[in-house]
Design a protein around this nucleic acid. Structure first.
Lengths: 342, 342
DNA sequence: TTGTAGGCGTTATCAA
DNA sequence: TTGATAACGCCTACAA
């Protein structure tokens, strides 16, 4: 049987109030009483019931995480960051995968609310979510991670996608590429829209027109991207470069290129978003935009904990923390070819 | 303010008992009462407080997951599997990273216990954990994932590591390699020991002696493995092949090999454990043992839920579910070289 | 400094 | 079929 505070109190010969105070170390307790209680608790192996405590204190020391898919390296790393700082402060995390699905996201929001988490870190699947807005209005501490739709009033920890994408595409152009295809995620998701924006700006600044034929959507999926890449390859005038906007899709594109024996970077150059550990091991080593994914997680969680602890005082926290990505140059954009030629 | 059952009951003009029954759809409630309650609940936006409910029902509909590191692809995938089946049954998961650290693991076990999860899926960091044993004795439904120490009496969902390793090493030998180095994880962790066992058996069956110089430990870490691989390279008689026992370490080894311009497979062949999506994109494409990681997760969770729902009846469930890994042959072991020679 | 008693929001019992 | 009322295990006024 599970031991309760009552058991401890009885064995220690004190009231539950005293036992509670002794264990919680607050309020008045005599030294003897405290020691006695602690000893008994230790002896019978008492461990408090967090549920009962939560009902009383209205704190669960749990935070919810809703992301699209833990399997995506960016989120894997971010979640690890979140968990690390949560743990340090005595919080646990509930992990939810929404799969870019608004309904699933909302269902999770519901249980998250019912389970009374102290705060929520979410990477939204769409531009808005009325249920989420309701929760925020209701006072739930929320931090938006990676995706920061304008419509949602909450603290955001995001990446400067426009500049990251700009840098990547500009790099391609500087290396002589002109027909640059882009494989986007899902229109409407902020990260996708922003990376696309960066792409367009880079083209514009270099006096290249956006060719609608060269923009396709991989929907954040490997298989879909594989197909889409094949379409690129089979064009009568295929692109001479590809900008692929996340890691899963980059893998898909690389796979398709590989299967069709397209030589990289001779025939098609490629630059990815996300810089996985294995990027240098590719054939050829992959040039990619590195995101500080772990930091996105740690910062999001630190921010959330601050909001939680600050209480209602500064509810209007609508800070936007923007982290810079960085282009890691290797060989998949034809860096070596270009040098040789020059 | 959060609405409570009392609010609903009052507005609907019934007692909380009736309201509770109407919402929970059990017991006797008249049609009118039910409809009234449901309508009011909907209208005022009532959502039950899971904490209060848990205190009463002694069920949290939450399961704990303790793994070493979500960042390791095997666990990423397994956790996704767990979460998927948990969700279908209305459960949430609390994610904990123990980092192969017994103390951290135990701390997590404590809070997991205090938070009264309905069950636990754990990949143990060591051969035993007295606190875990206590929890199991106490009746907590537990499933051991991936690592199944003999000493722990619980249902286990594991991989046949011996045969996986055997197959990998045997493959190397069949391709003419004799001096096969092995990079292990951490001695004492079942998966490491079992993969090492498979290595030894394969050598033995082929009349090759185990050379202690050729067995090293990467401790499941990329950096450590990088160092260790460098040591291999710098030997006066370096190995002609490497068997690396998980993905993180394989990446480390590959990185070291790459940095030192060791030609794969001409100088050193390599076979890994875990078959990441990017394996075919390596230079050369990586031969590796594929583990059904997602299935390990789904099966572990299904099993756990069965135990939870079965209640105390069949507490002695000590089943051991063993999943088969599979060698995926590509080019990093010199498959092509050998063919040419033959 | 201690103990009694009330309450957190549900569910469950049982008499009406 | 309904509705007081008692749990669930803990915290915390408040009175002693």
């Amino acid at each position: 049987m599970r031991k309760t505070l009552k058991d401890v109190a009885k064995k220690a010969g004190v009231s539950t109030a005293v036992a509670s105070r002794a264990l919680g170390s607050y309020g008045y307790v005599s030294k003897e009483a405290r020691e006695k209680v602690l000893k008994v608790a230790e002896k019978i192996g008492y461990q408090p019931d967090a549920i009962a405590r939560s009902l009383m204190t209205q704190k669960t020391h749990t935070i919810g995480i809703i992301i699209s898919d833990i399997t995506t390296i960016f989120f894997t790393s971010a979640v690890r960051g979140i968990e690390d700082v949560a743990r340090r402060d005595g919080y646990n995390v509930i992990l939810c995968n929404s799969d870019e699905n608004l309904q699933k996201e909302t269902e999770y929001l519901k249980v998250i609310y019912e389970k009374k988490v102290d705060g929520l870190i979410i990477s939204m699947s769409a531009k808005t979510n009325s249920y989420l807005k309701k929760l925020i209005r209701g006072g739930l501490p929320v931090v938006l991670l990676d995706r920061g739709p304008k419509e949602i009033k909450a603290t955001k920890v995001i990446i400067d996608n426009v500049s990251g994408a700009y840098e990547a595409v500009n790099h391609l152009i500087k290396l002589g590429r002109r027909r640059i295809g882009v494989i986007n995620g899902i229109a409407g998701v902020t990260t996708s829209d922003e990376r696309f924006e960066g792409y367009k700006r880079a083209l514009k600044d270099n006096d290249i027109l956006v060719d609608p034929e060269l923009v396709k959507y991989g929907e954040f999926k490997m298989e879909k991207t594989r197909q889409v890449t094949r379409q690129f390859i089979e064009m009568t005038h295929p692109p001479d470069a590809l900008f692929v906007t996340n890691e899963v899709m980059t893998t898909g594109a690389l796979l398709a290129l590989n299967e069709n024996n397209v030589r990289i970077p001779e025939e098609i150059a490629i630059v990815g978003f996300d810089d996985p550990v294995w990027a240098p091991l590719m054939k050829p080593p992959l040039t990619a935009v590195r995101q500080p994914s772990y930091s996105v997680g740690t910062i999001a969680c630190q921010t959330l904990l601050q909001i939680i602890n600050k209480g209602d005082r500064e509810r209007t926290s609508e800070e936007e923390i923007v982290l810079k990505p960085k282009l890691i140059t290797r060989e998949s954009c034809g860096e070596k070819l270009f040098k040789k030629r020059a």
